[in-house]
């Protein structure tokens, strides 16, 4: 089966149960990719979140919920629930493995510029009560990650210019 790449841009998300597909998102910077691996249905979801809180722009949140942690996670989980046929987030949490990558920062950052850390915290606060806290993460540091996940394999790979590629 040929492997097709589905590319997820900033503030977008994608879900897939197409076993020949890979989902990919480029150059996360301070943005965070959350990867949902639903083992029972062999489905995968990936969201590229840019900012923690949608309150700064309800307009954009309405058009592109994936942009923010608080609107993005419910939006992708809704699609995952439909795709996997589990219906609710409770059902979805069973058999779900969540991984997280990104949230980089600049050297000598202060709190204001540590958007990566704020993104990670906001996402975890949303995921934990759902029983979907990340099982693995590759976050922080001063590099911009590209993430690829294979639907069939459920394997997540991270790459970065000058650092090569490794598995999460």
């Amino acid at each position: 089966m040929t492997s097709n790449n589905k590319v997820v841009g900033v503030g977008e998300f994608a879900v897939s149960a197409n076993q020949g597909e890979r989902i990919k998102t480029f150059a996360l910077g301070s943005c965070v990719a959350v990867i949902f691996l639903h083992k029972p249905s062999r489905s995968v979801g990936l969201i590229h979140v840019a900012l923690p809180d949608s309150r700064i722009s309800p307009d954009i949140a309405a058009k592109r919920p994936g942009y923010f942690a608080d609107t993005g996670i419910p939006a992708i989980l809704k699609e995952m629930a439909v795709l996997t046929g589990t219906g609710t987030s409770n059902g979805l949490a069973r058999g779900m493995v969540v991984k997280m990558a990104g949230g980089a920062n600049v050297m000598d950052t202060n709190n204001t510029f540590n958007i990566g850390k704020r993104n990670i915290l906001a996402l975890k606060k949303i995921l934990w009560p759902l029983g979907m806290g990340p099982a693995a993460e590759d976050v922080g540091g001063g590099f911009s990650r590209t993430v690829t996940v294979g639907v069939a394999s459920g394997r997540v790979f991270i790459s970065c210019a000058g650092k090569g590629e490794w598995e999460l």
Binding site: A27, L28, G29, A104, V106, G116, G142, F143, G162, K163
Partner: peptide, 22 residues
Amino acid sequence: DIIAMLSGIGTGADTLQYRLDR
């Protein structure tokens, strides 16, 4: 420059390998 790098648009290996002047 830092905002562009944080947004994921850098120039390869040196992206974010600089210091913020607080």
